[in-house]
Design a protein around this nucleic acid. Structure first.
Lengths: 197, 197
DNA sequence: CAATACACATACGCTGCGTATGTGAAATTT
DNA sequence: AAATTTCACATACGCAGCGTATGTGTATTG
């Protein structure tokens, strides 16, 4: 059976992660005090060190959680698309849209890389990128896409989406520039296509 | 005349910026101690606060300096190219190559955004982006590029280059993936062209 | 040459992280 | 089921590092 202690511990971890998401998103990683953060969750720094090893470990846990949510949403976006090619585009668009959320922007795009290092090394980010790479490889195999290096193409596509996301998030009128970014993204992506449609 | 005091102050600023570039690049912003940093330059934290207002102000100065150097190199790369379109590509390639340098990667791509906020808001980055935007607009006007939003296209192009740079920098064999990234970048960029070459 | 300004050094306090140690409740043992 | 052990978390301590307030010597000004 799942012991009572294990259950309790999961609750504790969840509480800390929830408080950390809030604090990191609003104040930023550096300015977020662990005393305040844990107190907000009704705990102390003791619990934090026991469960996550330190401030950085907590950040890692937060990033992993958000990363997983993002991958799920990208998968859903791809699944809704008509063709494999459209799926790739929809995935990128979903990524762009997610960066409209301050939490994603601050934690995943700004502080995360600084604290944990290059995002392309994160486990989930790798999974997501791997899938994109496979999709592109499949598109190459079926003759839709030019024979470029699939991983390189996947990284550039993701990078373009990421920058579009940052642009939108920093804009005065995010929802005004969103369609422009999406359109440019789709146009740019066609550079990978073998023949113009 | 330029007073002796003003000269001395410039030297002091230069010494501090030089020491900070070194410290920020190797240890990272957060782990860089201002006491160590200033001692390395033969000064104390007093000089730092007087000249830059604080740790963040010093970071800003370092970023501005590197940013300016990067813009100059991109301009040089563009100037070497045969056509306006090739100039755009060469600029992106130059950007990718610069991120091979640990100093650029750590300070400009990782810590900079976390400390100072979104790079697209930095003064020099804006200047660079503005130029790219103008180049693309010119390419649209001359009929080389599809009629997309020039700023959006510029941001995506830069974003793709940036991500390629990060990929290369994080790779085990940077110089092995560089050509793949450059090739994919050029292919992707052709998505903006009106007709296939 | 006296007076002032100012660039930088020195000294202090406070915040915040990490660790070592304590504690009470759940789990295990016999 | 009573004693013992485990362990999740709290408490307490020490230290590093930032920001500020204040001191000092040299360059500038009248």
């Amino acid at each position: 059976m799942a012991t009572k202690r294990a259950q309790k511990m999961e609750e504790t971890r969840a509480k800390l992660i929830r408080a950390a998401r809030e604090a990191f998103a609003t104040k930023g990683y550096a300015a977020a005090s662990m005393d305040e953060l844990t107190a907000e969750a009704g705990l102390t720094r003791g619990a934090l060190y026991h469960n996550f090893g330190g401030k950085q470990g907590l950040m890692q846990a937060v990033v992993d959680q958000i990363d997983q949510e993002m991958v799920e949403r990208m998968l859903a976006a791809q699944a809704r698309a008509a063709s494999r090619w459209e799926g790739l585009l929809e995935e990128g668009v979903a990524y762009i849209e997610m960066a409209l959320e301050p939490e994603v922007q601050r934690i995943m795009l700004l502080d995360g890389p600084a604290v944990l290092g290059d995002p392309s090394q994160w486990p989930n980010q790798n999974a997501c990128l791997l899938r994109t790479t496979q999709t592109i490889q499949a598109l190459i195999d079926e003759g839709t896409v030019k024979p470029v290096d699939a991983e390189a193409a996947a990284r550039l596509i993701n990078g373009a989406a990421l920058n579009a996301a940052l642009w939108i998030a920093a804009a005065e009128e995010p929802h005004a520039v969103l369609p422009k970014a999406v359109e440019a993204f789709r146009q740019l992506a066609t550079g990978l296509l073998k023949a113009e449609g």
